[in-house]
């Protein structure tokens, strides 16, 4: 049906992220079936699919929170070699602290809700070995500022903040160490439309100014369309289609993608 595309010829950089044939089952449920993805430096890959399609499981694998039953995952970075699923707990923790940032839909997963917002951001730096108080505070402030968080509230704990502000704290924590890879799991789901637009704008700005490579998972096609260069469509744990964002939305090939696109209001 679809013609197969050629391998890249003009893009000379190697992919930053290469995941090959990830499979994962929970009991009888197969959450991932042979999922592969490549993401080039500075690129934004969007992953769409309904609840239970495996998109969040895939993202948790990329954040090394989950280990698939089969498959490999590598990042093309200095000092980072081999299949990252082979790393021990300490190795994973260090890699995630220094090279991978993540923003969850639920801020409780990413933040200590009772600690100060600046402290939440600084914690990431502490894990990476920074101990000087002034440096910690400065870097936390910069990251919060880049996430467009109002600095007069930087000592307020997330529990006292609105949903949009909590997402900005998560984002600040995620980018504090200038990660090579930023993972976003439904970052704007549950926010008001106007707040959602502002968070999206911040993400777009960060992406353009810092050329951060991103993988974003959302069931909201508008969010994916706004941010992504390329899109991967998942269903029942498998990738059913992938392509340039505008192509997948304007000329979807797979019947499931057509359903999804036509269901958009």
């Amino acid at each position: 049906m679809t013609l197969t595309l050629d391998a890249p010829r003009f893009v000379e950089t190697k992919p930053l992220l290469t995941a090959r044939n990830l499979s994962k089952s929970y009991g009888d449920v197969q959450a991932l079936r042979d999922v592969s993805a490549t993401v080039y430096p500075g690129e934004v890959l969007g992953i769409v699919g309904e609840s239970g399609s495996g998109k969040s499981t895939f993202l948790r694998c990329l954040n090394l929170e989950e280990t698939p039953d089969a498959g490999s995952y590598s990042l093309d970075l200095p000092d980072v070699q081999g299949n990252l699923f082979d790393l021990d707990r300490y190795g994973r923790r260090m890699l995630c602290a220094t090279r991978i940032g993540i923003v969850y839909q639920n801020p409780h997963l990413g933040l200590l809700m009772g600690h100060s917002s600046s402290g939440n951001v600084a914690e990431r730096l502490l894990v990476a070995g920074e101990r000087r108080f002034e440096v910690l505070r400065d870097k936390a402030r910069n990251a919060l500022d880049a996430s467009e968080f109002p600095l007069d509230r930087m000592d307020a704990p997330p529990i006292e903040l609105s949903g949009g502000m909590q997402q900005r704290v998560q984002l600040a924590k995620a980018i504090a160490l200038e990660p090579a890879l930023l993972l976003l799991d439904e970052p704007t789901t549950g926010l008001d439309v106007s707040v959602q637009a502002l968070v999206l704008d911040t993400l777009k700005r960060l992406q353009q100014e810092r050329r951060i490579t991103m993988v974003i998972v959302s069931h909201d096609l508008g969010v994916i369309r706004t941010l992504s260069d390329r899109v991967m469509v998942m269903r029942r744990g498998a990738v059913v289609e992938e392509g340039l964002a505008d192509q997948v939305f304007q000329d979807p090939q797979h019947s499931y993608t057509q359903q999804l696109v036509h269901a958009k209001l």
Binding site: L3, D6, P8, R9, V11, E43, L244
Partner: peptide, 17 residues
């Protein structure tokens, strides 16, 4: 960069162009 068939070019090459 050279001649490329846009009908089959890799997505990243199309993005670049």
């Amino acid at each position: 960069h050279g001649v490329i068939d846009l009908a089959r070019a890799a997505d990243v090459d199309v993005s670049l162009l």
